[in-house]
Design a protein around this nucleic acid. Sequence first.
DNA 1: GCGTTACGAGTCTGACCCGTATCGTATTGC
DNA 2: GCAATACGATACGGGTCAGACTCGTAACGC
Lengths: 202, 202
Amino acid sequence: MADMTSTADAPRSPGRPRSIRADEAIIEATLDLLAEGSTIEALSIEAIAARAGVGKATIYRRWAGKDALLLDALRRLKGVMAQPAGHSVRDDLVLLVGAIGKNVDPRAAKIMPCLAPAVNRSADQFQLYQNIISPRRQLMREVLRRGIDEGVLRADIDVEVTMALLTGPMLIQRVLQWNPDLDEQSLPERVVDAVLVGIQAR
Amino acid sequence: MADMTSTADAPRSPGRPRSIRADEAIIEATLDLLAEGSTIEALSIEAIAARAGVGKATIYRRWAGKDALLLDALRRLKGVMAQPAGHSVRDDLVLLVGAIGKNVDPRAAKIMPCLAPAVNRSADQFQLYQNIISPRRQLMREVLRRGIDEGVLRADIDVEVTMALLTGPMLIQRVLQWNPDLDEQSLPERVVDAVLVGIQAR
DNA sequence: GCGTTACGAGTCTGACCCGTATCGTATTGC
DNA sequence: GCAATACGATACGGGTCAGACTCGTAACGC
């Protein structure tokens, strides 16, 4: 919570302490409104305050503005990541690919597309985005490396490109509905298998 | 130009005809503002009018509102598609994959991310999006089918999944900068080759 | 109890915008 | 020349919002 007054090094509190429930309500209201279809810039502090049952001043007391609030709110979406079982490389990849865009918080799926424009306009928001996805990338990277070590995957593959290969199709389908004819349910499995064996005739 | 008064079946024009230069200026101003970083909903008719050197009334005389104007403006971005040479399946795929998100109009690349949120909120905008990309998908589909016919690609591959496999990585990288460490320049080639041969040890 | 700080609710100013209307002017057909 | 329609510019009423501010009240340490 970079933009909030730290409570850890508080030199004692002279007056009434800030309400934790208000913190919670504001963040939740923000995520709710986003998930309901509001876009980032259509989102107003007034609407958030009303939804949270909170005065506008209470929000401004905690955050410098909408951007700072959004930054904190979106951090909340970093749910628990899927944990690969570690038995079969293929199954682990299917699990990870299937988890793409399918967050713990059901609101995340609806909020994600809204972030696309923001990601490349502000360095802060780009960093936030990277912070969220890079541990997930790392997870997949480890599975691929394990596959190489075990001899299941070729040793000469480009791990980074392979991750993009596995992630890209799932992401464009979940976020953009890139091809309405594609069955999303079976996609993870089909993507992984296709990437594994390739499409070239032998 | 569904929302504009048709000029083809005009039953003669009683008064001063509408300025074609104004049409052009309005559309161009819209695209310019979007490319400069304005998001779709931050874009205002007033800003467009000012940028185009045009009165607001001139815009409202032609379009019903911002949505109708945007619809026409975005149609303008449908540039000429890349045309595969037809010699080597691999080279054709590299060409098509490299063309993803790299439109004729340099503004298109900056505008594309802005569309992501809109695409799944309005059926009209979703349709517009599909209208733009489906011919490109068709182009790739034909190359893949040709590869199968020629025996270069296996006959049992799922063409639709393969297209997602080729398109996804490029799209998330160009639109989202999914992995900042990936070299975008060489990505098309590396994606195509990886998809061709697969990653599994043999 | 007292000072301090937070609270929800509300007010206020100044932006910005939409969509319409109205200027005086320009350009067309007849 | 004249009616018709276009033009750019500007003004309008109505709306939303940001932020700072003000209430009376509530919760804390001392």
